[in-house]
Amino acid sequence: MAEKILEVKNLRTTFQTLAGEVKAVRGTSFYVESGESLGIVGESGCGKSVTMLSILHLLDENARAEADAINFVGQDISRITTKEMRKLNGYKIGMIFQDPMTSLNPVFSIEQQICDPLMRHLKLNRPQARKKALEMLETVGIPSPESRLKQYPHELSGGLRQRVMIAIAMCCNPRLLIADEPTTALDVTVQAQILDLMKQMKEEYDTAVVLISHDLGVISSLCSRVIVMYGGVIVEEGLIDDLFYETGHPYTAGLLRSIPRGDGEKLVPIDGTPPDLLNPPKGCPFAARCSHAMKLCREAMPPKYPMNEHHYSCCWLHHPSVIAKRGEAKLI
């Protein structure tokens, strides 16, 4: 079995706001194995970004993240200071963000933006860093990298900027790459190119990838394992095939029904809205929208029900007495 390079145990993140405490992440636990790619899927606002930003110490000031442990390559990074974390950011863990239009600093050249982490983490001098930066731009498929280095972000298209972001995130050859909706802001054709590039980079550098998306289609093109998040908790986790063919959670089933399948079948969006994270329900977060919801669902948070070695689902439908009464739920 591959080594777990990242293991998150019971992560809880809250935001202090004027309206009260937003409980954005409510006890998530998961792991990433070296070299694998893990997808995190869920509707907008379910806590995907906040989960990863908590791990990387990149949250806003009004946030508080706590965890029993976050082990990254043998070090508990939930206990270290932000200052110490910055020595791992960009070096052992790279990150790509959703909007390449706003994620690059407008008043610094591409060269300055790539060379800085190279010089800091790899202790290169300027000419060495420049050389490495050129190599990286070439690797991510940017034409005439020599002249691109001197340019500023506004002179590049969205797709090129996202390639630059990938080059920056990958330049120190990190163990883990976190991509937060890296293709959402791009044109469809460019999306496919960027996904291909990420696949290629992952193979070339043997980096583990966490890909955040609300689109199961995007996730399935890159990831072997998936976490489904809803209302600040993980509701289902499993290999991509388990999720597609042995769907365990009604919310996952809803997500699957809302993927365009290309066979002309109508999409079925999930009715209703996600729970209010200021006052999250004490039972299953999906209860208000679930067509299978029972009285028990509103009363108590369902535990993890293992479905196979890699696959579990947090839904009362898997409780033996419920199965005895209703039989195996047919979700799809």
Binding site: R86, G90, P117, R120, M165
Partner: peptide, 9 residues
């Protein structure tokens, strides 16, 4: 946030 994610102090 990008600058921080790059590990800039």
């Amino acid at each position: 946030r990008t600058e921080r994610s790059k590990g800039i102090p």
